[in-house]
Design a protein around this nucleic acid. Structure first.
Lengths: 212, 212
DNA sequence: AATAAATACGACCGGTCGGTCTTATTTCCG
DNA sequence: CGGAAATAAGACCGACCGGTCGTATTTATT
């Protein structure tokens, strides 16, 4: 019995704080996030937060890590339950668009928002974001490569290019859905990938029929 | 002789200030942009700025307008010098990628950065950004439609969808080029559109040969 | 040459920022 | 039960924020 009720309680508190921080950061930015503001929203004092993270930067890094975990749970995990190949790629994209459409986060996408925010701000936060982005790209390329190896995509396919295109459709959805017509945006994001995979995949039965 | 040297001088100053503001906004955000910081970089006093714009918000709106003008000059205008149709579409995308690759703005893309920053912040600045984004989309769709009307793209093409895909390739380039490998990013952004247009355009001589 | 407008300045305001310090309360372990 | 550790609170700090004010300088008009 090594479980210490004190640290367990602390962990629960920390996670709850970070979930709020992730959401708040999509509204005001990861840098614009103020300790007092976050404390207020949680009904907690500012020094209560400093007890958990020694500085704002430590809180920012923890927030990035929490957002990664959320992304793995909500987007990557559901996709991994689909069969390998183009169906898994499609499921991944669908989960992402659904995540945006469900308005889970007020600002749409934590990573899109923060990576644009920090793309000209050197420092540990930027490095952590770049690392997460790199891992996401590697993951996406792995899924594409698996589809190639299964014969569901052409053997001479430019794997990183298709991964780039898929991610581009998603990022664009995060941006347009908050500034322009959301329904048209989600339609384009979904249809864009579906058409692309249909054109590449020799077996049309692997993909849903959907709209033309 | 209606030219007033006073307002002419003022206009020159204003434009110079706004150019700096556009660049600075891509680093620290349009909201993160502080009056004192901007004044410092210009070697000017803070109250000197308030003589031109009565509030920070007025400065932000003027900065957005200036960024729109820059975009028209650097991306739209060169494209309009290419012949209508797929060649013009290609020229537009090339000008955009070249703009990012030349590192004209330290943060890559003013609009990508600010639109993500403001996508959950209601107010006049957001409205101005959304309006600019809407006009850009309309412009892109017009260029695609022209290519269809010229017979350079299929008659049954989903015009808004292709416009969405083209813009997505560009936005993604702005994001990835600052966080991951820039060269690979530009290659993907360029090749992505080239492959797409080649697959759709019945006359292959209209597009450069480029890499496969 | 005199005047009015535009432009720019330095000093200053109240407020919020990230961060520190001291103190009090809760919670588990020995 | 006693004590150490974790958690939380509030007062406070210097720095910077957006913004105002009174004033000085430049410049075109009359």
């Amino acid at each position: 019995m090594t479980s210490d009720g004190r640290v367990a309680r602390g962990d629960r508190t920390r996670t709850a704080v970070l979930d709020t921080a992730v959401a708040l950061a999509t509204e005001v930015g990861l840098d614009g996030l103020s300790l007092a503001q976050l404390a207020d929203r949680l009904g907690v004092s500012k020094s209560g937060l400093f007890a958990h993270w020694r500085s704002k930067e430590a809180l920012q890094l923890a927030t990035v890590d929490r957002a990664v975990t959320q992304w793995e749970e909500r987007i990557a995990a559901p996709a991994l339950r689909a069969p390998r190949g183009v169906r898994r790629l499609h499921a991944l994209h669908e989960a992402r668009i659904e995540f945006y459409a469900a308005r889970v986060l007020p600002g749409g996408c934590f990573f899109a928002n923060t990576e644009f925010e920090y793309n000209a701000r050197p420092g540990p936060v930027r490095d952590r974001l770049a690392e997460a982005f790199g891992r996401w790209t590697t993951f996406l390329e792995r899924l594409v490569r698996e589809a190639v190896e299964l014969g569901e995509l052409p053997a001479d396919l430019d794997v990183p290019l298709l991964a780039y295109e898929i991610d581009a459709l998603g990022i664009s959805a995060a941006m347009r859905s908050r500034m322009l017509d959301p329904d048209a945006t989600y339609r384009h994001a979904r249809l864009g990938l579906l058409n692309r995979l249909r054109a590449l995949c020799p077996d049309p039965t692997l993909l849903p029929e959907g709209p033309s």
